[in-house]
Simulated assay, not measured.
Amino acid sequence: MSRIAKYPVAVPAGVEANIAADQITVKGPLGTLTQPLTGDVEIKLEDGQLTFVPANDSRHANAMSGTVRALVNNMVTGVSKGFERKLNLVGVGFRAQVEGKALKLQLGYSHDILHPMPEGIKIECPSQTEIVVKGSDKQAVGQVAAEIRGYREPEPYKGKGVRYSDETVIIKETKKK
């Protein structure tokens, strides 16, 4: 059995988990998330804890039990606490601001970039060079942050671009004559 799947997922107060034949739904104060299931993993809710057991002895079922456990744990964390990803803009004249349902980015191009906010994602700009992406779905938060970073990735000579707050950019030495 997967080592990850051996640990149960605690369901905190205020969070409901509903297990159907083909999906699991987790509902909490920050929203509702659903995850489709295959028949490879059996999920049981007992005493406020979700346990995960492979349905058979196949290698695929063993692997899926750990995967489903990790996905459900992220769902429970997302609807109770939420996830956030911080980005920094490094460069002269690089700015960001929230305009309605879109994020306006000035990244040194001849035009401004408008990035629409998907449903369930909240974007904040505490300052002109900081972006905070928040939401209950970990995958969606990471995807939106990666799309914003993709508009101008950090370049290796001056380090200019959009980077994660915990990212370190290794600066290359310039060519010598």
Rank of each mutant, 00 (worst) to 15 (best):
I113S: 00
V92C: 03
A63L: 14
E99Y: 04
E84P: 00
S58F: 06
T67W: 06
H60Q: 14
L105W: 00
Y109H: 06
A70V: 07
L114M: 14
K122H: 12
L105T: 01
Q97S: 15
G78H: 02
S80G: 01
I123W: 10
F83I: 07
S65W: 08
N88E: 13
V72S: 10
N73D: 14
A61Y: 09
I123E: 10
R85M: 09
K134Y: 09
S80V: 03
V68I: 14
L105S: 03
V98A: 09
F94L: 15
C125G: 14
M64V: 11
L107H: 04
H60W: 12
P118M: 05
I123P: 06
R95H: 10
E124S: 13
L103A: 02
A70G: 11
G82F: 03
K81I: 07
L87T: 02
G108M: 01
G66I: 12
T77R: 11
S127A: 13
T67I: 09
Y109I: 02
N62H: 12
I131H: 08
D57N: 15
H60F: 13
I131G: 12
L71G: 00
L105P: 04
L103E: 01
K86C: 06
V98I: 12
N74H: 11
A55G: 07
G91D: 03
L114I: 04
A61S: 15
I123T: 13
A96M: 02
